[in-house]
Design a protein around this nucleic acid. Structure first.
Lengths: 138, 138
DNA sequence: GTAACTGCAAAATATTTGCATCCTT
DNA sequence: AAGGATGCAAATATTTTGCAGTTAC
């Protein structure tokens, strides 16, 4: 278990440090999405705010986690299901936001179809967000 | 045209003020999604930052506009379906936002593909936002 | 030992709130 | 005239940056 975390860091050419191990562990235990503030609380004031910002940013760059959109102004992070090649992670699955309970779901198996852009337009990122009612609120 | 805007405000029991008229006009002209910062720029320093915050919040509460979440930290706003119809139907097409110049394009001929949701999920609205570089900045 | 990472301080941004004044109705 | 909306100032909250000290390898 601990080895999986260490391996993941090693595979991405990151030094194995306490904060990184701890934050990855939080994600694995949570099993879902976490906000920056969640991590801050759960890590028990152990780590500096700034360290968390930088750690999350590093993880996103390496493709270990990805950000998911929310209706309120917060940014959520979640572990990437598939292992992506470092640096070139494409977050190409659909997100679903429930209007009732506000939960955000990663629909990992629903892929964003390739959109064909007019001439001269270059795609860098595509977000497909569906809102409506989730299975629990229906 | 101007009447449509006034009617919309009236219908929602809102006083007809300059800032509200101007902001609604911006949305109609843009034909797509706008960020708070876009509105601030486009309104030409005419309105207070705070007024824009409060106006957008009011519009969201009244259901005149809705937020479109994106994976980066920005929140986009767009006119709700029912209201943005009149001349055009801005319903099911893709929005493109240029990272360089910040312009939002309505790609009217690029339709959002139907996404298949897991059982129990009900779709109410789908937003597909592509970001990258537009034809002018490329 | 060296490069990378962390923590602290502080700067830069973004958002919210209180209140006096002005505008819409 | 009355209630709501705006603008200003200031309080909060969030994110970024610089740098010195510490740690992983």
């Amino acid at each position: 278990m601990q080895n999986r975390i260490a391996d993941l860091l090693k595979k991405n050419q990151l030094s194995i440090t306490d904060s990184r191990k701890k934050i990855l562990e939080l994600f694995q235990n949570a099993g879902g999405a976490l906000a920056h503030s969640d991590i801050e609380k759960m890590s028990g004031e152990h780590f500096d705010r700034v360290t968390i910002y930088r750690t999350l940013q590093t993880f996103v760059e390496k493709g270990i986690i990805h950000t998911i959109p929310t209706v309120d102004n917060s940014v959520l992070y979640a572990l990437c299901k598939d292992e992506c090649s470092a640096g070139h992670h494409h977050d190409n699955h659909v997100h679903f936001i429930c209007d009732d309970c506000g939960t955000t779901y990663c629909l990992d198996h629903v892929l964003i179809p390739k959109v064909e852009l007019p001439l001269g337009f270059t795609e860098k990122q595509t977000d497909l967000v569906v809102s409506g009612t989730c299975k629990n609120c229906n």
